[in-house]
Each structure stands twice: as structure tokens, then as C-alpha cells.
Amino acid sequence: MTTFVASYQSEWLKTKRSLAAWLVVLGGFFIPFILFWARVLYPDKLRKEVVSPTYWEGILGQSWQFMAIFMLPMGLVLATSLLTQMEFRNNTWKQLHTTPQSYTTIFLAKLGVLLTMLFQFFVLFNLGMYLSGILPPLVRGISLPKQAFPWEVYLKTSSHFWINCLPIVGFQYLVSLQFRNFLVPLGAGIGLLLASLIGLEWEHGHWLPYSYCPYYFFSLRGAKLGTLAVDVFFKWALGYFVGFTLLSYFFYVLKKDKS
């Protein structure tokens, strides 16, 4: 009987050279790369910024500003759907379901790989933010930032965003496992994201499962949207994730045709 570890390794191997894997790498470095050039091209501004005692917080805010509202949710919609739909695209469900492993193992191994890739994205994005802050002064021959790198703040912010985007992973996983047509999870994801963005100022905006990343970002800026406190978003996000995952599991296991 195949163990979870073997199943996870097998799932991980499938991501090699996949579009989703490239999306994670490119998505992780895209905004830091643009901000790197923005700093390199405007050295006078950079000279003032590096002496600021909140240099790194500035970089963190700038980077997440572009990432949190649209790019991260959209990237997740794409990456989760692409990765999960790989079996439909390659016609491999029938082969996978004739291997000696339980459906639970397959389900959890796939979900495990999705969460690992999400983690990988956050690691790359944080590395990108650090490099976009440290390299421009070196390129321009300007003194390095005075402020020590506040890794605790970066870690805390990233872990909050990680939890806040879990409902997106859960819902996209659910839809992508059920529908062969890639446009279904993509359309559902874009639709929910737009609905969540439109509903941000609604008093019940927190009911919308794709709204927690933007809410958290605005809370970092001190703006209060909606009616809930920041730490309540996490509970809603986790609740939605658990709910979507359970639904997804039951739909997957009970599917009559597994070919």
C-alpha cells in the first residue's frame, strides 16, 4: 500500500516544468523585480529612503500593495486550477486511480503539494522583497540601509497572508477536482474574486471567501473596511478552508466515474 510520503513525492514530481511551477517562481519575483528597477532608476529617491528607520517596512508595504489585492488571489486561482487540472489535461486520472493507494491518500497528497507550493511562493516573494531592498543600493554604490532587516515583521505578515488566502486554495481545489473544463474553475475563481473586491465595503463583506487578503492588506495600512477585526478574518478564512476541503473530499471520494 502506498504511503502518504510516496504519494506526495510522486505528486511533487508531476509539478516539474509545469506551468503552475513556473507561475510560482515568476509570481514570487515579479513585483520585487519591478520595484528593484524602480529603485535603481531613481537613485536620488533611493538615497533618501535607505537612511529611513522604516526602510524595510516601506518595501514590505509597497510590495504587498500590488500583490495582496489582485495578483496573489488571481495567481492562486490560476496555479491551483492548473495544478489540479493536470490530471484531466493529461488524461491521467484513470491511471492514478488504478494505483494501490486510497482515495484519501491521493486527495491529501495533492492538497499537500498545493500548500507546499503556496509556501514556496511566500519564501520566494520574501526573498524577492529582501533582494529588491538590498541590491539597488549596491548597484548604485549607495550605502546600505541603516535599519536591520525586520524578519519578524516579514514572517508575521506573510503567515497572516498565507492563512487569509487558504479559502482560495480550498475553493479552487474543490472546483478543479470536479470539472474537466479548465474554464469552470477559472471562471468561478475570477467571479468570486471580483465579487469579493466589490463587496469589500459591504457590512457583510467578510462573508465573501476571497476578500481576506485585501481586508488584511487594508488593515496593515490602518484603514478599516468591513465590520470585523483583523484576527477574526483568520477564523473566517480557516473556517472556509476547512469547509471547502471537507466538501471537496466528499465530492471527490463519492464521484461515480473516476476515470
Binding site: T2, A6, S7, Q9, S10, L13, K14, K16, R17, S18, M86, N90, N91, T92, W93, K94, Q95, L96, T99, P100, Q101
Partner: peptide, 18 residues
Amino acid sequence: SLYSQLTATENLSVWQKL
């Protein structure tokens, strides 16, 4: 059933682990 972005050896590695 094969993963189009993988080589023949990599494709078989996917199943070998299972």
C-alpha cells in the same frame, strides 16, 4: 496516461514511487 512536460523516465518515476 502520461505527463506531457516530463520525459519517459520521469513519467515512470511518478508511478515507480507509487
